[in-house]
Design a protein around this nucleic acid. Structure first.
Lengths: 228, 228
DNA sequence: CATGTTCTGTACCTGTCAGTACAATTTGGA
DNA sequence: TCCAAATTGTACTGACAGGTACAGAACATG
């Protein structure tokens, strides 16, 4: 017998998913191994067998997030190829938050705010994760720029940083105020700002102004836990 | 003898300030009363005499933040009366973060991300705090609008929400990446966006483009703890 | 200086934290 | 079938969490 059996992999994944959900709900610090184990119906044995320590679990959770961002498995699609895609990317975050009745922020941001000097490894994982997201967004801006569709003053790196900051800040406000209004306000302004970098007379698809709910996001969010 | 003596008030304030610093540094959940008490050289007796519980302490810390925002005691000036004031408001946040070597985020945001459903009182305090800040920023936009200095599509409430979200998100990214670059990028884009609401031909002071360090902020930040 | 009040320090309590030890059980291949 | 590795549950540990009890010290006023 070598490596991991099917049963083991299932248990491991069950713990991982439960942990991710609890971390998102109440933060890493406020979540004990015991709580995760009870919710995932597993024992201490498995936990330390598969993850070694709580920090190891957090690392694995973040790796799974990175995987989801890169492969598109999560409720948010990071493959942005048009301005409408970008708008959907923004709105997807609002939808996820609404799905949890405005009780939670962004899972990445929630973990990020909990890091201190002692959690250097976690910080690096998160930094990497945000860097991946940034580069995905930036790739779109660069592509547009290469086609001459952006104004001269557009800075693709700054634009990507701005997108992420706006979304993170918006979701924090949504959680603190338990309201979607500030989130929608911030996202709307952010999107308006980015669209102003579209060069006039560019032949790209006309930027639609309507803010609609993206269906795929809703469906994906529904897949996730419904209880809080 | 009635009320609080001078000595008592001093101890109380010492605990309060130490707690605020530790909460900012490592979050509420990761800070124990014992740790606060040791750092402020006080005993358990005082702690529960003055604050009743840890939650009571958090409440008092947030009240002191509200007071600082309203009276202008802190390192950030929330009395915005010009576009340059607004730019200084943005930059002040970056300066505070730099002062702590990019190891911390915003004190409000750090506490905010730690709240869960169990901390409803804390959440309300924070919501109130952000509302005050929002209204201070909004007051400036409304004033500009009343003078016909804003374009027709400017929405003062959304603009204020956007300011706060941008700053909060920017500071989170700064902390996670331990770099001021994404913070400066996000703040620059946010400021550029807001300035585009300035009506052409308005007679207000010409929006300066330079991003300089505001001296008063530096001095105020220096007053705070230097150790991490 | 008598006295009740405020202020302060220490000892202690119960529960939970992250983690270990280890035995029991299941499993897949020879 | 038999074995060794993989998997699982339970009991236990020292450390620390938030909080209480309480006695002693300082203090303002009569």
């Amino acid at each position: 017998m070598r490596g991991e059996s099917e049963r083991g992999a299932a248990t491991r994944l069950r713990i991982l998913r439960t942990a991710a959900d609890l971390f998102h709900k109440q933060g890493v610090g406020a979540t004990s191994p015991d709580e995760i184990l009870e919710a995932s119906r597993a024992g201490k044995g498995q936990f330390y067998h598969y993850f070694g320590s709580k920090e190891g679990l957090v690392h694995q959770v973040l790796l799974s997030y990175i995987e989801a961002v890169e492969s598109g498995g999560g409720p948010v699609n990071y493959e942005v190829r048009s301005w409408d895609d970008l708008e959907r990317w923004f709105i997807a975050h609002i939808e996820v938050q609404k799905h949890f009745r405005m009780l939670r922020g962004c899972p990445f941001g929630t973990i990020g705010h909990g890091v201190s000097e002692k959690d250097e490894l976690v910080r690096q994982d998160l930094s990497h994760l945000f860097e991946i997201i940034k580069n995905k967004l930036r790739a779109f801006f660069i592509s547009e720029q290469a086609q001459g569709k952006l104004t001269a003053d557009a800075d693709t790196e700054r634009m990507a940083d701005f997108c992420i900051a706006a979304v993170q800040g918006a979701m924090l406000m949504g959680k603190v105020k338990r309201s979607a209004l500030p989130v929608e306000a911030a996202v709307k302004e952010a999107m308006a700002h980015l669209r102003r970098y579209v060069a006039r007379g560019a032949s790209g698809p006309a930027p639609g102004a309507s803010v609609r709910t993206s269906r795929p996001v809703r469906a994906a969010a529904r897949r996730r836990s419904r209880r809080d």
